[in-house]
Amino acid sequence: MSDYVEISNLSKVFPTPKGPLRVVKDFNLRIRRGEFVSLIGHSGCGKSTVLSILAGLSDASSGGIILAGKELTGPGPDRGVVFQSPTLLPWMTAMENVMLGVDQVFYTASREERRQIAEYYLVVVGLGDAMHKRPAELSQGMRQRVGIARAFALSPKMLLLDEPFGMLDSLTRFELQQVLLDLWNRNRLTALMVTHDVDEALFLSDRIIMMTNGPEAEVGEILEVPFARPRHRKELLENPEYYRLREQLIEFLNTRAYTLKGQTPGQGHGPGPGSNTITMVKSMMAAEPVSRS
């Protein structure tokens, strides 16, 4: 089966006062059509950088990406992006936020048809009653639901998720993982998700790419997730295989993410050596959202 997404020798170098800093080095990844792939690694390993290059919001220093037979150049609505913070436009209702993209992609459809598309996705993510509310009236979790609906409603070739549930409390996170999975089961969009949550990666993905620590982060190991779909969290949690894979992921993150780079395991938990680059990328991508609610 041919590859739907082909990421070849992707590198990203940031200029810093101390000289150029190579955040990502020769990143290669092939994704099949309809596959859900997760990138997991410590903070600062460049996984978000890879995603933002895919989204077209950041340029690669070298290497390239082919999506559905076409080389990517810059951003476009053929990729639905779910950001870590929902980044809804606060002066628009949930419906209007979704419509902004739908109007753009389905400009040949009638207004009523477009409205129905937006409404369909909002209902599916569970916002049937709240679609005419503004983000300020919605909880963090509900806002992220809008973000998910907005991405799916574009019927994109590919879905890009940048730690989509990172800012939510764990109960809401479970809920939204289920929402995402249900929606994904309906149309099986090719998806790439960045996360540092081991359970989230196992629950959602077909394949998990473990990245070594930055700088010069690379693909470390790849884990195939064999669980049949549709998946149910309860069944998964009763499966001994789940714990074996989970152990393998944690083992990688705790030791081999370091040793593969010739570092000592456990040196500085939390933000890795490259965390300054992540802050740089974040500040380039997203100036801190000003809250005006």
């Binding site: 077209g56 919001l57 951003p75 950001f83 980044t87 436009l89 993209g101 959202p289």
Partner: peptide, 22 residues
């Protein structure tokens, strides 16, 4: 916020639309 402008970029909004909608 850059986030808002990123939405415009990702959706490829036209200049006029970016101006008036965002």
């Amino acid at each position: 916020p850059q986030d808002y402008l990123n939405i415009a970029r990702v959706l490829k909004l036209s200049r006029t639309k970016t101006l008036f909608k965002i």
